[in-house]
Write a protein that binds this DNA or RNA. Structure first.
Length: 283
DNA sequence: AACACGGGGAA
DNA sequence: TTCCCAGTGTT
């Protein structure tokens, strides 16, 4: 019996959220994972529902235009993820007969699928053993096992080894889902709910009286950033089929930053210039 | 290892 | 205002 398995999986079976991607097919799991990269569940939910209704399989999404996809993505943020999901759909429909590959190695080779997402798909879509380490799981074990408020900035070799040892032989996918859910709902970044935590009694961080970790983070500013500028332009193009260079510059106070954003958005494939000094979402 | 990449809601 | 969020790809 894996350490904590009974407590955490037991807790999960009683307290898990009813989320649509938990009863979808493998493609639905992949779509949800891409959307959930850096975007909270509450904001993904409505977009995900509509997305899967409109494009139920990789083949369906592959047939959509880039413009349709960026528009449907709405304000989930990081719209390059939408492009990668589109590319993913094309590869899966053309090279994998519209079915997801089932190995981490093949999944990792798909656009937008990194270490975390490949492991998550193996666990959640195929119910196989994999090492799922997202921010919630990493925080949960940093606290419970290491007595640290927050995990290291990036995953270490030692962390992979130690966390892999915890995965139970039986129902490893439940372990992944349960630890993630516990981290997301109970062992939260701020104000963890230790009163209802199934492993509070053995939590090292709690036994040490919650020592703070020195965080030398410098919050990335948002107002006035290149990202905000890009976001304003893409949103305007969702609402207007075409914009002139002059129109785009009305959206932002600094022309030089608009130039830079138009250049980077074009390079990313998020926008295109159908003719000189005009911009639109790509076909 | 560091950086770029969106956006909204909660504290 | 500050912090957070089911990370990935590039340099």
């Amino acid at each position: 019996m894996s350490l904590y398995e009974k407590e955490i999986v037991g807790w999960f079976k009683k307290n898990q959220r009813d989320l649509p991607w938990r009863k979808s097919d493998a493609w639905g799991v992949l779509v949800s994972e891409i959307m959930l990269q850096q975007t909270p569940v509450a904001r993904v939910l409505p977009i995900y529902i509509e997305w899967m209704k409109r494009w139920p399989s990789p083949k369906d999404l592959a047939a959509a235009t880039t413009s349709e996809i960026i528009t449907a993505w709405g304000r989930l943020g990081y719209p390059r993820r939408a492009l990668r999901l589109h590319q993913c759909a094309k590869v899966i429909s053309e090279q994998y007969n519209n079915r997801l590959p089932e190995t981490e190695q093949e999944l990792r080779a798909l656009p937008g699928i990194g270490e975390y997402t490949a492991a998550a798909i193996v666990a959640f879509a195929f119910k196989e053993r994999s090492l799922v380490l997202d921010v919630n799981i990493r925080r949960l074990f940093a606290r419970a096992l290491d007595g640290l408020e927050v995990p290291k900035p990036s995953v270490t070799k030692d962390e992979r080894k130690k966390r892999a040892e915890l995965i139970p032989a039986r129902n490893p996918h439940l372990w992944a889902a349960a630890t993630m859910e516990l981290g997301a709902l109970v062992c939260t970044a701020q104000n963890p709910k230790c009163q209802i935590c199934p492993i509070a009694d053995s939590c090292k961080w709690r036994s040490l009286d919650f020592p703070k970790t020195e965080q030398k983070k410098r919050t990335q500013a948002w107002h006035g950033t290149d990202r905000q500028c890009r976001g304003v332009i893409v949103q305007a193009l969702r609402e207007n089929k075409v914009l002139s260079s002059k129109d785009v510059k009305k959206l932002w106070h600094l022309d030089s930053q608009v130039e830079k954003a138009l250049s980077s958005l074009t390079k990313d494939g998020l926008i295109t210039s159908p003719k000189k000094n005009y911009y639109s979402l790509p076909k």
